[in-house]
Design a protein around this nucleic acid. Sequence first.
RNA 1: CGGAGUGUAGCGCAGUCUGGUAGCGCACCUGGUUUGGGACCAGGGGGUCGAAGGUUCGAGUCCUUUCACUCCGACCA
Length: 504
Amino acid sequence: MRFSRLLVPTTKETPNDATLASHIYLIRGGFIQSVGGSGLYNFLPLGKKVLDKVRAVVKDELDKAGCQEVSLSFVTPASLWQESGRFEKYGKELLRFKDRKNNDFILGPTHEEMMVNLVRQTVKSYKQLPLNLYQINLKFRDEIRPRFGLMRGREFLMKDGYSFHASEEDMKREFDLMEETYKKIFTRLGLAFRVVDADSGAIGGSGSKEFMVLADSGEDTIVVCDACDYGANIEAAVCQEKEFTTDTKTQVITMKALYDECISEIVTFVLPESEVLEEVKACNAVKANDLVDVESPADADRHVIDNTLKECTEYVNPEYADISAVQEGDACIHCGAELRYTKGIEAGHIFQLGTQYSEPLGATFLDENGKAQPMVMGTYGIGVSRLLAGIIEQHHDEKGCVWTKESAPFDLHILVSNIKDEAQVALGEKLYEQMKAKGVDVLLDDRKDRFGAKMKDYELLGIPHAVVIGKKLSDDLVEFVTREGMVKEEVSSSAIEALLNERF
RNA sequence: CGGAGUGUAGCGCAGUCUGGUAGCGCACCUGGUUUGGGACCAGGGGGUCGAAGGUUCGAGUCCUUUCACUCCGACCA
């Protein structure tokens, strides 16, 4: 591709709402364009190329693991969601609308219902199981507050996979296979990540794990052990039991628990004064949809006491649960070493769903005895567009993007310094044609601009390697540049061909 | 939804207090010079000032209503 023909609107100025490196550089580098704010983005040619490359890695590894790609209708009849009970339950993030015949529809925020519907219509026998189907398609979640560019858009590209099994054991086998497959994907993309235990949230199910791209800008706090591989989202983290006595000072936190159909109750949570209430755990302990602060003091309907206070008996009908957050320095549940906090970007999440969707939606198969059984399911997601942001969060410097090999928009960038210098142009064109012939995806900067402007754009775009053909060509020298660290090697014009042939 | 703020050219902003011909930087177009670190000179195009209503001889500016977006909390790949 010739730079002069490529639509890459790079800018010097940072958009005023961008604070994260990934947001700033993806906009400034002309990869994406905001659509009237509000978490919607257009992918320009370069952004689309990166997205496709990331997507290709995801697809390649999944296909190798035996998964099959499908594409489900993005507009979904509400009736399916009414069947599963999520039409009412999902909340305002679900975009609902009507068609001309006044039928209800939604834009899919996740596709359990759709995939179960597909499978229940086509799979009838245990002989057809197991099955792992996925798609890499748009999702829409009407987020309360979209922000951080691609990190939390309302419309985003997600890989969502669903597996169907005749038994719990087989589903667990697939779950482990997906964990390994996801590790391969994240590794190929050049990401530093950690697999952590997680809360299952709105999707439901048990035994879920999150794939956290490690970055200080991450929105999730994760608890990790440096001595072993234990890691967990703070929402689900556990540690070795701490000793408290009846003398322990306690704190009482009163909250309102919200349930379906506008039902609520007042709950008091009691935990040692030294501990911190973990709201997700607390919410799970009372099986509520949400916990909110109470405006005025009220008598509690229930009392939930932290497990560490089993001795405490001053309440009637106490319920015990783990409701305190693991703190830094607590002992690892596996090895006893000190735990610490770090920040992560949730880029993947895998769930053991069981029969949570197959039962209400009637997805059954006939077993060896001809008896109908609900399919046992797993579900597996990767935020593909979020991965782009994750890659840049981990791979950038003060000058711009530093794409990893498998995510880069081009393999090689050839920069001709002065387009009026015939010798420079001739060498640039020659190398460009040679590399293209080899199947290398190469970008030739053939623009009329000055050297500085072209170099700034190279640094901003962050293609892994560049050949800079400049005024030293009169001494038969060109530069081979490695974007990471901006390492420059001077080589002769004949040696550059050998070098490129060796590298690509 | 709670709190704070902003809407003026593609982007970033000034002008609003104190009403009087719509401005600056970047980007864009034309011509020329320049070509190793985001060049320079000259000329040029681009706006229903978020929307609606009101006050006024006159509204970007004052009043009312409304919409959108951004930032801080709960949700999520």
